[in-house]
Design a protein around this nucleic acid. Structure first.
Length: 559
RNA sequence: GGGCUGGUAGCUCAGUUAGGCAGAGCGUCUGGCUUUUAACCAGACGGUCGGGGGUUCAAGUCCCUCCCAGCCCGCCA
């Protein structure tokens, strides 16, 4: 009875859309998407605490894309908390899933991405087919591969100050929390088959929606030979498992497993999690929108018989124009991002409309940071843009740790320019010269603003872009015309007379004119001597901040 | 092949839910700040809203169709 038409019809009818699907109060559009979702959740009059879930299967690297699962739900959780609800945000590590193939990349305990060559790959290879919780941590820190991965995600959540309760799927089976679900599915196995068969053509009259763990070799098995719901057990044979082009060998063992010694297939496990945890809302990526969601909704309603959560599909973002891929190395982690920008900027990125496909272009992070700065100013009413201001008024308080008007944001590229020197006082002085600070600016505000310099500096170095210049400690190699050399000597004499930066800037022009040399050539000479580059900051004022002897000596090309 | 989502200025994005003048920032260009370089100020340039068709007094928005990208429709998650 399963045909292709049946499959596509079922999928089309149940396509998820959290913005205008059921819920009843979606006729007015809010300025922040999380309010729309919260409206829908409230319309169902849910029990407290309201439960918001996310989850992923542990893979090689916990990357920024995975973080959608946590942070999208977080914004909804915060909105509901503000409305007076008690909210429990959980994250399931789907760690009873089997390791199906070796990851090409892993992240160590500090979140650094490393190749498979840096760990005992052989040990991983021997554990193919086993649940992630049964595989040792390749880095030897946590009690399992799964625990290692979960710890990384939890650390990322902490870094962004997001309170989330990490739950292990394996533990939920071991605790017996899934027992009633497994029992119900197997007692109603005909209904279960009938419903899933609408979505998966391989489901036939012999299909058993339960995968025991082999008591002999520890691998997840796929061949159940009989079910005894009275005893609460299934009999199985540990057969080979086909994964893509490869085969994971079974050991041939014939055994009996309880409902805690195995797992439901994903299509049942996901709705099972909703039921056991009482989930009211769950965001998920577009990959689930057409397959898992329609079948999960159907299974919840017609097999397990409860109301599934409010869904929300988020679009995937690309990184530097390409899909996120750990095997291709096109990946970025939360901790890497936080070396480049503040947590609130990263949170802002995820506060933007989840339905839009976005590109996170690291080479233009300055744009993202500028956008955040503008968003922040809009909250305080300083931007003449009605749409942006409405969004900012609502979303900004959920993006920053604390709403404070006294913050100073140095433009990101300017912060990168300040990164040319490690001298904190010099950085402060240059920013003051440009009007970002004055005598009344409190020290902690200055310190907070200057913290961006380190991040922007990292960015300039990582991208090796136009802002990646450094004050040269040693005399760079150069090749100047005699007229330029004369002009540099004259400028050195001028600097030696104790003029301030503004005067030096003026003298640069005077000197160039006096010696009849191109302004551009003279500036280029200055940037060569001090930065070994062709451009840099406003030169005269910068030189005025440096130690005079150093400037004079360098202009004379003596050291 | 079928379905879902996305496609708006060079870049990043608003605006699409209820049809009402095509928008912002950045970049670029020009000018200003006694002084070409980051910043700052003023102004300008920049668009067949992916293409085409339709409905309408009026379409980025609604309908049809086509193109491009990602995803799903095997397994797995």
């Amino acid at each position: 009875m399963t045909t292709d038409e049946d499959t596509s019809d079922a999928a089309a009818d149940d396509s998820p859309d959290a913005f205008d699907d059921a819920g009843g109060s979606s006729d007015d559009h809010r300025d922040f998407w999380a309010d729309d979702v919260a409206d829908e959740i409230e319309a169902r009059d849910p029990d407290e605490p309201i439960v918001i879930k996310g989850g992923v299967s542990p893979s090689g690297v916990a990357h920024l894309g995975n973080f959608n699962e946590i942070i999208r739900g977080y914004f909804v959780a915060e909105v509901l908390r503000e409305r007076g609800h008690e909210v429990r945000q959980v994250f399931t590590s789907d760690d009873k899933d089997p390791l199906r193939k070796l990851p090409r990349k892993l992240a160590d305990e500090d979140g650094n991405i490393v190749g498979l060559g840096e760990v005992d790959a052989g040990a991983l290879g021997r554990n193919l087919g086993k649940p992630y919780t049964s595989i040792p941590d390749p880095f030897g820190e946590e009690e399992s591969y799964a625990a290692h991965f979960a710890a990384l995600l939890k650390a990322d959540a902490d870094r962004l100050d997001i309170p989330v309760e990490m739950l292990s799927n394996t533990e939920m089976y071991e605790n017996g929390e899934f027992d009633p679900v497994v029992e119900h599915v197997l007692e109603n196995i005909d209904t279960a088959r009938e419903v899933l068969a609408k979505y998966q053509s391989k489901v036939d009259a012999d299909y058993v929606p339960f995968n025991p763990v082999c008591e002999e070799c520890g691998k997840i098995t796929e061949t159940v030979t009989s079910v005894d719901t009275e005893a609460g057990t299934v009999d199985y044979v540990c057969t080979d498992m086909t994964v893509g082009d490869n085969t994971i060998d079974g050991c041939g063992h014939e055994g009996t497993a309880t409902f805690r010694e195995g797992k439901l297939p994903w299509r049942f496990e996901w709705p099972g999690q909703w039921q056991v945890l009482g989930v009211d809302f769950e965001p998920f990526g577009k990959d689930h929108a057409e397959g898992s969601w329609p079948s999960g909704k159907d299974i919840a309603e017609n097999v397990l018989e409860f109301e599934p959560p409010i869904p929300m599909v988020y679009e995937w973002f690309t990184l530097n124009g390409e899909a996120l891929s750990s095997s291709a190395g096109n990946i970025v982690t939360v901790s890497e991002m936080l070396e480049l920008l503040e947590p609130e900027v990263l949170r802002y990125f995820f506060a933007l409309n989840p339905r839009k496909a976005r590109d996170l272009d690291l080479s233009r992070l300055d744009q993202l940071v500028d956008d955040f700065d503008r968003f922040e100013r809009a909250y305080f009413g300083d931007v003449d843009d009605e749409n942006l201001t409405r969004f900012a008024k609502r979303a900004y308080p959920f993006v920053v740790d604390e709403v404070r008007e006294d913050r100073v944001r140095l433009p990101y590229t300017f912060a990168a320019v300040l990164g040319m020197t490690d001298d904190e006082d010099l950085r402060k002085q240059m920013a003051t010269n440009e009007g970002f600070f004055d005598d009344d600016t409190p020290d902690d505000v200055v310190e907070e603003a200057l913290a961006r310099v380190e991040r922007a500096r990292h960015w300039a170095e990582k991208m090796d872009n136009a802002y990646n210049y450094r004050l040269q400690v040693d005399l760079p190699e150069f090749d100047f015309d005699p007229a330029v050399e004369t002009a540099l000597d004259e400028l050195a004499d001028f600097v030696e007379e104790n003029h301030d930066g503004e005067a030096i800037q003026g003298e640069i022009y005077e000197t160039a004119r006096r010696n009849d040399i191109e302004m551009g050539d003279f500036f280029a000479a200055g940037y060569r001597l001090f930065f070994d580059a062709t451009q840099g900051p406003r030169l005269g004022e910068f030189l005025g901040e440096l130690e005079q002897d150093f400037v004079v000596t360098r202009l004379r090309r003596e050291a």
